[in-house]
């Protein structure tokens, strides 16, 4: 059985402008110790998917309209806030894009890194402080005995992200949700952070859900990739398989628009138009209006294409227009 099994998750936001279907029937599963990637453009629902599982969606306007997220026999979506609190931050850790806004500027790093231990394990102050020093050492922060008593602003961006990772992993969680953890960092720092996440994952056996819009990062860290578009998964496959043999027109378009795949001076491929407005119901294939690589004329118009397995472990939305 999978460690985490998300089935048909639907999260809608009820706003004055209408119902925004941010996540509209997403299913995926995560095995122990593996890394699953979620890629998509802004607004494709990748972050909302993870926030829904963790009960971090502001309600209202948000509402979880349906689905289940089973983690070790508990449905995270219906178990209630009290049960969720036992899991969040203890058995499921999170790191975010911008470590400055997710660390409290008024509190010393030691207080913040040790907080999960004090809350979830009831550890006393002295031991928690010692554990925080150890955790900072494990994520490669030099001179952790002195650094631990400093404030977040005294750390550089890369070091702050290391603090976040130390904090998220201090309770040895079974799952780590990483939401664009390297987007705000320089390439050399990005590599250090990705290597660090991989190393800690090996040592602790943590499973990782990795959210990003950067396909190259996904290809480096993930075992399996979900490509999201307009609140749904359009394609899922093992990372190597997805990049070698992308089937859905959206995945193919994304890979085709990366500068690295172009010869110098060659016109870059661009996906025409904009992602659809998810506050209006989409009846057929969501990608049809922007589909150039397939045959948009053959895209489904009356029903949303279902995700079907076309090869072992390779799932794709079964829309004739996007597959051709």
């Amino acid at each position: 059985m999978s460690l985490l099994e998300v089935t048909d998750l639907k999260t809608y936001f009820h706003t004055r402008a209408g119902v925004v279907r941010a996540v509209d029937g997403v299913s995926f599963s995560l095995e122990r110790g593996k890394t699953v990637g979620i890629v998509g453009e802004s607004g494709s629902g990748k972050s909302v998917t993870c926030y829904s599982m963790l009960g971090l969606i502001p309600m209202p306007p948000g509402r979880i309209e349906g689905g289940a997220a089973r983690f070790d026999g508990v449905d995270l979506l219906s178990c209630g806030e009290r049960a969720l609190r036992e899991i969040r931050g203890k058995r499921i850790g999170m790191i975010f894009q911008d470590p400055m806004t997710s660390l409290n500027p008024y509190l010393r790093v030691s207080t913040q890194v040790a907080e999960p231990l004090r809350l979830h394990m009831g550890m006393d102050k002295r031991r928690a402080h010692a554990a925080a020093v150890e955790a900072l050492r494990e994520v490669g922060i030099p001179d952790p005995e002195t650094r631990v008593d400093m404030y977040p602003h005294e750390f550089s961006g890369g070091m702050r992200q290391r603090v976040m990772i130390a904090m998220a992993l201090i309770t040895k969680p079974e799952i780590l949700v990483a939401d664009e953890p390297t987007t705000a960092l320089d390439v050399t720092v990005q590599k250090q952070i990705l290597d660090l996440i991989k190393a800690r994952q090996r040592e602790l056996g943590t499973a990782v859900i990795f959210i990003t819009h950067d396909l190259a990062v996904i290809s480096e860290v993930c075992d399996e990739v979900n490509v999201m578009y307009a609140g749904r998964v359009v394609e899922r496959a093992a990372a190597a398989e997805l990049f070698e043999d992308p089937r859905h027109a959206y995945t193919r378009s994304l890979l085709k628009s990366i500068p690295a795949t172009h010869a110098k001076g060659e016109e870059l491929y661009t996906i025409p138009g904009l992602p659809p407005d998810v506050s209006r119901p989409i009846s057929g294939c969501a990608f049809a209006p922007r589909n150039q690589l397939g045959e948009s004329g053959r895209c489904l118009t009356d029903s949303r294409p279902p995700l079907t397995e076309i090869a072992a472990g390779h799932w794709v939305q079964d829309c004739p227009g996007c597959l051709s």
């Binding site: 390439v187 050399t188 190259a216 480096e220 990049f243």
Partner: peptide
């Protein structure tokens, strides 16, 4: 060289 080595790349075997 260090900068170039840090760029994540899409690895395909083909």
């Amino acid at each position: 060289k260090k900068l170039l080595a840090s760029i994540p790349t899409i690895e395909t075997h083909r």
